Amino acid sequence: MKKTTAENASSPAGIQPASGYAGDIPAQLAFEWMQSGEAVLVDVRTDAEREWVGYVPGAVPLAWKQWPGMAMNAGFDEGLKAAVPAGKKTVLLCRSGVRSVAAAKRATELGMEAYNILEGFEGDADEQGQRGRKGGWRFRGLPWKQG
């Protein structure tokens, strides 16, 4: 039986070591930190993704790249600094956990304690190329809304 990301984690808290940022964490841990006020969840997907696919209530919407064209968001650094108070963890969410790694590295360069949320909002694509069935925030049953 394949182990879950949390079971594979190298620490009891579920934090997996990463290069260039504080670590990778399961969505459930990110949600717990967000609920306790320990962290600010920053959703780095595009506005279109959040609108069409769904979003996490209480998350800060701050695109890493802008649609269309996926150009870098020139206001990302300033937006991130404004969104996350000093002393709080930054947990970053994207579609599948790829853009959020880049964003976590940037947040770390800005002096933040930044974590990537494993599996992202939608998880990996399945054999049919569809997301939402193999991991992710929604798949794990965590709070989200659409529309």
Score class of each variant (00 low, 15 high):
22 A>C: 02
69 G>Q: 08
28 Q>K: 15
65 K>N: 08
141 G>Y: 04
107 A>T: 09
34 M>Y: 01
5 T>P: 15
24 D>I: 14
50 R>Y: 03
11 S>G: 10
52 W>E: 10
92 L>A: 06
43 D>P: 09
134 K>M: 13
50 R>T: 09
80 L>N: 06
18 A>Y: 07
22 A>I: 05
61 P>L: 01
84 V>R: 05
69 G>E: 09
76 F>T: 06
74 A>F: 09
82 A>L: 04
146 Q>H: 10
95 R>W: 07
37 G>I: 03
20 G>S: 07
71 A>T: 13
68 P>H: 13
125 A>F: 01
63 A>E: 11
115 Y>P: 04
109 E>K: 14
73 N>R: 02
109 E>D: 14
125 A>I: 02
82 A>V: 06
97 G>M: 04
66 Q>A: 11
34 M>G: 04
133 R>L: 07
66 Q>R: 14
1 M>W: 12
50 R>P: 01
15 I>A: 01
23 G>W: 00
104 A>P: 03
12 P>I: 00
98 V>H: 15
74 A>V: 13
138 R>M: 15
90 T>I: 02
96 S>K: 04
116 N>W: 02
47 D>E: 14
93 L>G: 04
12 P>H: 00
78 E>R: 15
20 G>H: 11
9 A>S: 15
58 G>H: 09
128 Q>V: 05
72 M>K: 13
26 P>G: 14
24 D>H: 15
1 M>G: 14
77 D>G: 05
101 V>A: 11
103 A>F: 08
70 M>E: 08
42 V>W: 04
128 Q>G: 01
140 R>E: 12
116 N>T: 06
92 L>W: 05
93 L>I: 00
39 A>E: 00
62 L>F: 02
140 R>D: 13
56 V>W: 03
95 R>Y: 10
98 V>P: 09
32 E>R: 13
40 V>F: 02
41 L>W: 07
122 E>N: 11
44 V>E: 05
25 I>Y: 00
57 P>T: 10
23 G>F: 00
6 A>P: 03
26 P>L: 05
38 E>P: 02
11 S>N: 10
105 K>P: 00
32 E>I: 11
62 L>C: 08
133 R>V: 11
53 V>E: 15
91 V>P: 00
1 M>F: 13
35 Q>Y: 10
131 R>S: 09
141 G>S: 13
102 A>D: 08
93 L>W: 05
100 S>K: 15
73 N>M: 07
30 A>H: 05
98 V>D: 08
84 V>Q: 03
3 K>H: 10
145 K>R: 14
116 N>D: 10
88 K>F: 06
31 F>N: 10
33 W>A: 03
114 A>N: 04
36 S>T: 11
32 E>T: 13
97 G>H: 01
91 V>M: 08
62 L>K: 05
131 R>W: 02
60 V>W: 03
92 L>S: 05
46 T>G: 12
27 A>W: 02
25 I>G: 01
50 R>W: 04
63 A>Y: 09
110 L>A: 11
34 M>N: 07
36 S>V: 00
47 D>H: 14
28 Q>P: 04
60 V>N: 09
140 R>C: 12
104 A>C: 03
19 S>Q: 06
79 G>Q: 09
9 A>P: 15
143 P>M: 08
31 F>S: 07
77 D>W: 09
92 L>Y: 04
49 E>Q: 15
9 A>T: 15
145 K>N: 12
97 G>A: 00
64 W>T: 02
43 D>C: 10
65 K>L: 09
37 G>S: 11
75 G>F: 07
12 P>G: 10
123 G>R: 02
40 V>D: 10
